[in-house]
């Protein structure tokens, strides 16, 4: 055991340091995203949004966080208490874990694994468990309905996200996220694969339970959906997990379609800017689109949501897989052929 400790102590410490290097910027990112979300929403509706705490209301989100920390954690009497408390932890842990493979610049990534995109897909497909466990363990009707809706919704839209990812992979020839970005050096994929870009964007909204697909937490029907019984810290964990997932989906859109850290044109003043600045700008832009959709579009009805997922996106993305591979095959464009 002592031998083990001596050999791996420095290694483990470095890994922990790297994890903090991901976690702390992510936390700041979530705080800024929450603030931006409320500000953009307010601006669309000609309100001011948060503007009291700190300059321009910037400290509103940390203040909210502090408030939640000091609130009492209420455990419902009939609930399954272990599962009830594990659910938010799982949601947050999974959403952070997915960021381990996201490259923010050439070579700047915690784990540059061969199957990066599959890893992210796998982790985000696990996200549904946090919600299902929360809904079931609350032992209450509204959370249960919310969880059932959410499970059905996330499973449906995962299918079309999977097909969209396959179309991108066909053009890249690798599952490695860094190579996916490098394959876009000549042209960002949102130009040749524009319809798939739209499908991915809308599916990402549905996958992260963002409006107009926020049926699992529809306040007009289900109080707060699966979060109804949560208070204090567990609620904050859900909130943070959700927003980290949203940022992850923004980063995925950036990596798959908007060229990751690559500048728009590879000329002097643009390619002198470090890659992570471009990455950050693009993620911010996609998040801006997410926030605008939230402000503009009314909530979908449940059957419309299912229709869109299974009857529109699934055939469309399936067709796109066949079409893309046929075109790549017949024009000899497929990588590695």
């Amino acid at each position: 055991m002592i031998y083990l400790a001596q050999t791996y102590f420095i290694e483990v410490m470095t890994i922990i340091l790297y994890c903090l290097l991901i976690f702390i910027p992510l936390l700041l990112g979530v705080v800024m995203a929450l603030y931006a979300d409320r500000k953009i929403w307010a601006a669309v509706q000609k309100r001011r949004g948060p503007n009291v705490v700190g300059p321009y209301g910037l400290f509103q989100v940390p203040a909210d966080g502090l408030k939640f920390i000091f609130k009492e954690i209420i455990l419902p009497d009939g609930s399954d208490k272990t599962v009830f408390l594990i659910a938010p932890i799982i949601t947050l842990a999974l959403s952070i874990a997915a960021w381990a493979v996201v490259p923010v610049q050439a070579g700047v990534v915690l784990a540059n694994i061969n199957v990066g995109i599959l890893y992210i897909f796998a982790i985000s497909s696990l996200g549904v468990y946090g919600i299902l466990m929360a809904g079931w363990s609350s032992n209450s009707k509204y959370p249960f309905f919310g969880a059932l809706r959410s499970a059905a919704q996330m499973v449906s839209y995962e299918v079309s996200i999977g097909f969209v990812i396959i179309t991108v992979l066909l053009c890249v020839g690798s599952l490695n996220l860094t190579e996916i970005v490098m394959a876009q050096k000549t042209m960002w994929f949102f130009i040749p694969l524009f319809p798939m870009f739209i499908v991915f964007f809308i599916s990402a909204l549905a996958e992260t339970n963002r409006p107009p697909f926020d049926l699992p937490e529809a306040e007009s029907e289900l109080v707060a959906g699966y979060q109804t019984e949560y208070s204090g810290m567990p609620f904050v964990l859900f909130m943070f997990g959700e927003y980290i997932n949203i940022l992850l989906m923004c980063a995925m859109t950036t990596i798959l379609f908007l060229g990751g850290w690559l500048p728009p044109i590879d000329i002097y003043p643009l390619n002198a800017i470090p890659g992570f600045v471009w990455f950050l700008l693009k993620v911010t832009f996609v998040f801006y689109l997410f926030a605008m959709v939230k402000a503009f579009v009314p909530r979908y009805r449940y059957d419309q949501l299912m229709r869109l997922g299974w009857k529109v996106f699934l055939p469309l993305s399936l067709f796109a897989v066949v079409a893309t591979s046929s075109i790549l095959f017949f024009f000899n464009l497929a990588p590695g052929m």
Binding site: L126, V128, Y129
Partner: peptide, 15 residues
């Protein structure tokens, strides 16, 4: 294994 069994099959099972 995670995508197929945990992400899809077990979700329906749990459902």
């Amino acid at each position: 294994l995670i995508i197929v069994y945990v992400g899809a099959v077990a979700v329906l099972f749990l459902f």
